[in-house]
Structure formats: structure tokens, C-alpha cells
Computed example of a mutant assay.
Amino acid sequence: MFGFILTGLMIPFFVVMIPQYVLWNALHLTDTFVPLIAPAWFGGGVFNIFLLRQFFLSIPAELDEAAKVDGAGHFRIYLQIILPIGKQAMIVVGLLTFLANWNDYLGPLAFITSESNYTLMQGLTLFQGSYSAQWHLMMAATSVIVIPSLIVFLVAQRHFIEGITMTGIKGEQGKINVGKRTCP
């Protein structure tokens, strides 16, 4: 099943853009934000599934076994062990999804037609005319559009770095560290 899902990484958006448009048009949801929001809420893409799966496979099985010995059920193991360890990876996935969707131009171009529903990236094209462009206004708008991405990245940078380098073994300070293999 995972191998089948991975084939989605090899298919570019250009290939599935027309079938997606036909689907959203049949549901009468083109020129709305639903085609842009719904896919991000239901999986967010193959890369996110791949990233989370690889992260959860790196968590040692000894943590689950120790919790089972202590009498924890599957739901409690997930809630008290797996979820706190996976918090960093989920923050990384959320950050990457936000940045990808914030900077997306082709997706909104395919699904949104009226200027009143344009995303910020599409709105930048309004500064270009047939024969000239208002470069000073376009650069000012681009600077303003970059600010939220920069703020989100700076706030989440610690989680981003920890999510990339984290394993499932606790270190001396109670944080999960890569190089320390001590008992909790």
C-alpha cells in the first residue's frame, strides 16, 4: 500500500491538474477556496505521508513494549507516548504545508477565476499590464506578502530543526536528543 502511495511522488501536479479541475467543476466548487483547502486537510500530499511514516518508523518499539508492560492500551500509548514524540514531526509537516500553500501560484490559477477570490500570489499579477508593469508596487506587495512566511518560519524554526534531528530516545534533560542513548 505504501509503495502505491509513493507513486504519487513521481506524478507531477501538471498531470493531475485537469482531472482535479474536472472533479471540482462537477462538484460546482471551482472559483471557491475549497479546492485549495480540502486537499491540505486530508493528507496534505504524498510527501507529508512519507515524512510522517518514516519518522514514526524511527521510534523504537521498546517504548511501546514498555508501555504495554506498564498496562497501557493502544489509545493510551498513542496519546501519551507516540503523539508527544511525533509533535515535532507534525509541526514540520504543518510548516512545510503552510509555506507550500502560501506560495502556490499554479493551484489557485487552475481553480480560481474571479479577481475577488484571487490569492495573494495571483494578486501580484494584477500589477502587470499588457504593455508595462508597475514594478515598484509589485516589489512593495511582494515584501508585504513575504512577512507572514518569515514570521511563521522564525517562530517555528526551533521545532523545525528538532523535528528533523529527533529520534525516540530521551536524553539527560528530558528532551529527545540524537546522540545521547541514556535511559529515561
Score class of each variant (00 low, 15 high):
Gly163Pro: 05
Ala156Cys: 11
Leu154Met: 12
Val155Ser: 02
Ser132Val: 11
Leu137Ile: 08
Ile161Gln: 07
Leu137Ser: 14
Leu150Ile: 14
Ser130Gln: 11
Val146Glu: 06
Ser132Glu: 13
Gln157Lys: 11
His159Gln: 13
Val146Met: 15
Ala141Gly: 10
Ile161Thr: 09
Pro148Thr: 05
Gln134Asn: 11
Pro148Tyr: 03
Val144Leu: 15
Trp135Ala: 01
Phe153Pro: 04
Val144Asp: 12
Met139Lys: 02
Val146Gln: 10
His136Phe: 02
Pro148Cys: 04
Thr142Ser: 13
Val152Lys: 10
Val144Arg: 14
His159Thr: 01
Gln134Asp: 09
His159Gly: 15
Trp135Lys: 02
Ile161Phe: 13
Phe160Val: 06
Leu154Asn: 00
Ser132Gln: 14
Ala141His: 08
Ile151Arg: 04
Val144Gly: 12
Ser143Tyr: 04
Leu137His: 13
Leu150Glu: 06
Ala141Trp: 11
Ser130Ile: 00
Trp135Asp: 01
His159Ala: 14
Ile151Phe: 12
Ser132Asp: 14
Val155Gln: 01
His159Val: 02
Val146Asp: 06
Ser132Thr: 14
Ser132Pro: 01
His159Leu: 07
Leu154Trp: 00
Gln157Trp: 08
Ala141Ser: 13
Ser132Trp: 09
Ala156Val: 03
His136Leu: 03
Met139Trp: 05
Glu162Met: 15
Phe153Arg: 02
Gln157His: 12
His136Tyr: 05
Arg158Ile: 07
Gln157Tyr: 13
Pro148Gln: 03
Ile145Gly: 01
Ser132Arg: 12
Met138Glu: 03
Ile145His: 05
Ala133Gln: 13
Phe160Ile: 05
Ser130Pro: 00
Ile147Trp: 07
Ile151Trp: 08
Thr142Glu: 00
Val155Lys: 00
